[in-house]
Design a protein around this nucleic acid. Sequence first.
DNA 1: TACACCAAGTGACTATTGTCACAGTCAGGC
DNA 2: GCCTGACTGTGACAATAGTCACTTGGTGTA
Lengths: 228, 228
Amino acid sequence: MKAEELAGILAEHSLFADCDEAELADLILRGHFVQYEKGDDLIMQGDPGNSLLILLSGNARTSMVASNGHEIVLDYAEPGQVLGEIALLDGGERTASVTAIEPTTALTITRVAFEDILKNHKNMALRLLKVMANRIRTANTMIEGDRAYTSGPRLARYLLRLSVVGAEEGRLKLDLSQSELGNFAGMSREHINRQLSTWSEDDIVSVESGKVRILNHAVLSNIANADS
Amino acid sequence: MKAEELAGILAEHSLFADCDEAELADLILRGHFVQYEKGDDLIMQGDPGNSLLILLSGNARTSMVASNGHEIVLDYAEPGQVLGEIALLDGGERTASVTAIEPTTALTITRVAFEDILKNHKNMALRLLKVMANRIRTANTMIEGDRAYTSGPRLARYLLRLSVVGAEEGRLKLDLSQSELGNFAGMSREHINRQLSTWSEDDIVSVESGKVRILNHAVLSNIANADS
DNA sequence: TACACCAAGTGACTATTGTCACAGTCAGGC
DNA sequence: GCCTGACTGTGACAATAGTCACTTGGTGTA
């Protein structure tokens, strides 16, 4: 892949949209371009974290497995997302795995290269700080949702999180199976199924050929903030 | 309070331990020293976030109230902790409140001063990045605990999080009431009470005059990682 | 001392959600 | 076409934890 193409992809995405040419050039020069098949791990829980990735194309799932085997999906990553900063920064193990859910390409940046880039481009640190601030916000929202709400509002929240702003017909960013939705929203597959059935009776969502659509965004938002 | 004193306090705590003199001096010069009574809010959920705080003395509670009124304690902050970076960095509202649980002093740094300091001292950005990486790790661990474990292991985890490494007689960093422990561990006061009673029968913890002590750290750690 | 107040302990009941078991459905490959 | 496997739908039951209501105990104050 050519440098210009890469630069184009990077510049398309929010985080790097305001990078100057020198920054982009450096990222591409120092980074290492890698392709993944569906199902491959871009990052593996428990590994030492000596690199940072920038997702260029394809979608990936960030998930962790607790010591009792329970699988938790933390997030779904889109192109432009920075992945693996945490372990790189604090020198610890990777807390979660990142798995390609479709063919995916990413730019890998080693610790040394990353430190050089941070040193040479002051804005990069500030950009990264913003990305991380955002992640903490998301994590706190997740904790709030898990703690304060029952399954209904919670599932509503996760569906809204997957919804695309101007999507025709309430399409979601990703068509997840009900088991995956369960791992994301923290409830059993069966319970997801029952909740979706109830909602589809009231035309709040539709469930056709395994794909969930949001039919009534407004009502779903209300449910997401309901008292129980 | 004199600059040397402040510098001493800052240098004592991990995050600022490796600050050079110029950095410390700048923090103190640009920062604004504030005292709080027990119960005062250092940061208030919903406010615009235009400053960052460094806790100098006293302990504080970081908590958020969900839209249905449910209160969630996210963390307890010790001296040396940086607070309020998230809203400062991304320009959003404060997601949580920080409340003094005893008389407390903090150094307040405005956005402008913060940006200057970041600009003039390259290491500050890296330091902050590490702090935030740590926060994300803690948040993820919290999500993992909430999702994957039942109340027993979960309470064990939160007790261990409050435990001091070399504490005599298993004393905790803070003596929380059972209701507060409930808000921290995400369970009802009554359930906390019953769980603690069970454990104290087996001499895993002791509960005397409202203070919880960890008697058997090893067993509690096992419980924290139990299968259910 | 007596009162008030707040934290803690406890029993009974309820609600929510998970688990298990099994049946139906749909898509792709041989 | 039909077989396979993965996803989906659904009933019955179990378990975990919350809620309510009340008692007990301890501390500070008039």
